[in-house]
Amino acid sequence: MISLSDSENGTASSTAATTRLARAIRLSGGEFSLILACCNGVERQQQVLNVLTEFSSADVHEILLSPVTDTLYTAITSAIGATQPEALMIRGLESVVEINQLIISTNIMRDEFRKQFRFPLVLWVNDEILRKLVWLAPDFKDWAATTIRFELPQNQLIEFGQQAISA
């Protein structure tokens, strides 16, 4: 099981969330599943990914979306080619300029995800992207089990709030 030191890597709830994410990836076992990982901090996402790759035996691939990405399905197929990784993490949704169009096209193409991908797909989202998925891609979003939330540790929440105020 994954073990995180609270003082170094976040709160106990983040430890539980990381464990849930690792378990969801492991249980998918060669079949498509949609996993939503919600975290409002890009640095926190990277910390969780570092822990997963360090402690998980799964071959987890990662795609960082470009701001000009127009369809998620095409971005994935272009990046993985004919390979089928054990798991695929998608990051960078918050940076996509035409995010509404990307989400709508994802909902339209949702059946292709299940037909073509035999691995868990982890979408890293923030609260805003999660709301957009609910409104613009409800059928696709419904494929996901409960969203796994990665809360920022209290000291990072304070820093995040101060940065938002000064911006």
Results as ranks from 00 to 15, higher is better:
11 T>N: 06
29 G>Q: 12
79 A>P: 01
103 I>M: 00
113 F>E: 13
136 L>P: 05
17 A>V: 06
81 G>T: 01
110 R>K: 14
118 R>V: 03
72 L>R: 04
126 N>W: 12
75 A>W: 06
54 E>F: 08
156 Q>Y: 11
42 V>A: 14
30 G>P: 12
159 E>G: 00
82 A>Q: 09
160 F>S: 08
134 V>Y: 11
15 T>D: 11
95 S>I: 05
150 F>T: 01
40 N>S: 11
131 R>V: 06
3 S>L: 11
101 Q>K: 03
8 E>C: 02
22 A>P: 03
66 S>E: 12
65 L>I: 03
4 L>P: 01
132 K>P: 13
130 L>M: 13
80 I>S: 02
132 K>S: 14
84 Q>G: 11
59 D>P: 04
7 S>M: 04
69 T>V: 10
3 S>M: 07
80 I>N: 02
137 A>F: 08
134 V>W: 05
162 Q>F: 12
155 N>G: 00
44 R>D: 15
24 A>G: 02
65 L>F: 03
112 E>V: 00
78 S>K: 13
127 D>M: 04
35 I>N: 07
71 T>Y: 10
43 E>S: 15
149 R>E: 15
108 I>D: 07
87 A>S: 04
159 E>M: 05
144 A>F: 10
63 I>R: 02
80 I>V: 13
118 R>M: 12
42 V>C: 08
23 R>F: 05
138 P>D: 14
52 L>H: 10
40 N>G: 15
47 Q>T: 15
92 G>K: 04
76 I>P: 10
29 G>I: 00
41 G>W: 03
142 D>R: 12
93 L>D: 14
